[in-house]
């Protein structure tokens, strides 16, 4: 079983819904932000730290901004005897020990702490390296937490983990996940009560959705599918979901008004108010599935 962040039996009101997709650009942020607006009182966490967009739609008033670090080694050369143990135990080749020098390649370091632990001379201490930052803010009753990875930084997962540590108890938490199916996506969806996969009914959308389905099954996270632009493409996505017993929990047909609103950073609910009821219904449906 996936480790749950919280025991939902003792904290009935704490809920974590993640919004993911295999393929990018299918409408994750659209679903996440409109769901949040429809609920009214919720906490949205932008875990697409490489290309975060939720803030464009939520427009929160940012109240705090804090850097996120990973620990990297710093060598005190006056204590070091260049024995080479630190380089030997580093699985990422982030340390090279020369005859009279030690080189640390900080961007290769995963911050496991082995080098410091095994250094006999106590010549290594860990220092913080900033990989990005987290902003928090509010918009009415909506709470916002978003991570932003620094430009040129490769490792997104530790930052996503930090964003997720800000999950709020006794509240509905909506996680806007990054696209893909690798470590970042897994970090974002892990410990969700339910994952909503947003897809489009095209061969690319289906191919990538199937990969996400395999990941979610491996993680034992319950999930359902939203088909966005549901009238552009073919019916293979529906056929696949039926065959695999995957619930299709919503369909959003293509609408130029939605595309226009999106392009301007407006929610669907703002552009087409009849969608408010649809997203409220989606929320009720998700609650029932989680309980």
């Amino acid at each position: 079983m996936t480790p749950r962040l919280f025991d939902s039996k003792t904290l009935l009101l704490t809920m974590i819904i993640s919004i993911a997709s295999g393929k990018g650009g299918t409408g994750k942020t659209t679903v996440a932000t409109n769901l949040a607006f429809a609920i009214g009182k919720a906490h949205i966490l932008d875990c697409d730290v490489e290309e975060p967009n939720s803030h464009i739609f939520i427009k929160p008033e940012i109240t705090s901004k804090s850097p996120v670090y990973i620990p990297v080694p710093e060598i005190d050369k006056s204590k070091c005897d260049f024995c080479g143990k630190c380089a030997e135990v580093c699985a990422y080749k982030a340390i090279a020990v020369l005859k009279t020098d030690v080189l640390v390649f900080k961007e290769l370091c995963h911050g496991c702490g082995a080098c410091e632990y095994f250094c006999q001379k106590k010549a290594i201490k860990e220092v913080n390296r900033t990989i990005g930052y987290i902003e928090t803010g509010e918009k009415g009753d909506l709470l916002f937490t978003g991570g932003k990875l620094n430009i040129g930084e490769a490792m997104a997962a530790p930052l996503i983990k930090e964003v997720k540590n800000r999950v709020k108890l006794q509240m509905t938490n909506i996680i806007d996940a990054p696209p893909g199916t690798s470590c970042s996506m897994i970090e974002a969806v892990t410990a969700s009560d339910f994952c909503v996969l947003v897809t489009e009914p095209t061969p690319f959308g289906l191919n990538d959705m199937i990969l996400s389905v395999e990941v979610l099954r491996k993680l034992h996270i319950p999930f359902g599918v939203i088909i966005n632009r549901s009238d552009l493409g073919d019916d293979k996505t529906v056929t696949y979901c039926e065959k695999e017993n995957i619930p299709i929990i919503m369909k959003i047909p293509f609408d130029k008004n939605i595309a226009m609103a999106y392009s301007q950073g407006k929610s669907i609910i703002e552009a087409l108010p009849e969608y408010k009821q649809k997203f409220i219904a989606l929320y009720e449906d998700l609650k029932e599935r989680i309980e």
Binding site: G24, G25, E50, E51, L149, I151, G152, E153, A154, M155, A156, P178, P179, G180, S182, S184
Partner: peptide, 11 residues
Amino acid sequence: GSPGIGCPVIA
């Protein structure tokens, strides 16, 4: 390439 700006994109 892939979306994003992280590890696979840099590679």
